[in-house]
């Protein structure tokens, strides 16, 4: 019997945020990231029969998403290559460093290690969030990640402000201990 079962009815609730975070760190555009996540779910649905149950559903969906992201870059690079006009060349000569972008330091440039660490931490946070009760996780995401007002969240979930703070407190405590185990 396979180790993992497949159940597409729960995919959106369980994996959409994780997959979205995975995508947005790689494509940097919200709309594109949403499209890619949606395409991944559709592709997963079509190839459900190929799921052998050896890896978890999430790992399997991530492997589909990776291919979608590669396809996305192939597509935009082929369009971009045709239209690209370089106008940032210095007239001073064709020695090394003639391109203007090479002449200035980029203070915002992060090293590859920083980027990898940030991506992994983001995924670890989403992994810990997926372990919280659904309502608690949703409220925490809205308050902490999306920055919604306390009042807006209270209206959306029909709860009082003190209920909200109790939920936030529980979520923060669970997350802190989960991250301590998995990350720090």
């Amino acid at each position: 019997m396979p180790k993992h079962q497949i159940n597409p009815n729960k995919w959106i609730d369980l994996y959409s945020d994780y997959l979205f975070n995975y995508t947005i760190t790689r494509v940097k555009d919200r709309d594109t990231a949403q499209d890619l996540v949606q395409e991944t779910f559709f592709a997963g649905l079509k190839s459900m029969k190929n799921f052998k149950g050896e890896a978890s559903e999430r790992t399997w969906l991530v492997s589909i998403l990776k291919r979608k992201i590669i396809d996305h870059y192939r597509k935009i690079n082929s369009k971009k290559g045709k239209a690209e006009v370089r106008i940032n060349f210095s007239e001073d000569g064709d020695e090394d460093g003639s391109w203007l972008e090479k002449r200035v330091a980029d203070p915002f440039d992060k090293t590859a290690e920083d980027n990898i660490e940030n991506t992994e931490l983001g995924l670890a946070i989403h992994h810990c969030l997926s372990k919280l009760p659904a309502k608690q996780a949703e409220i925490f995401k809205m308050k902490t990640i999306l920055g919604y007002d306390t009042e807006a969240i209270c209206n959306e979930f029909d709860i009082t402000a003190s209920n909200l703070w109790v939920i936030i407190h529980r979520a923060r405590t669970s997350l802190a201990s989960c991250l301590e185990e998995n990350w720090l």
Binding site: I12, S16, D17, N21, Q38, G122, L146, R172
Partner: peptide
């Protein structure tokens, strides 16, 4: 608690807004 806030801010983690999630859900 302060460490957790720092960790969440630092990698700029993101998630779907409820309406965006709803849109994906209804299509799916």
């Amino acid at each position: 608690n302060a460490k957790l806030t720092e960790l969440i801010k630092d990698p700029k983690i993101d998630c779907l807004k409820p309406k965006e999630k709803e849109k994906i859900k209804s299509c799916f």
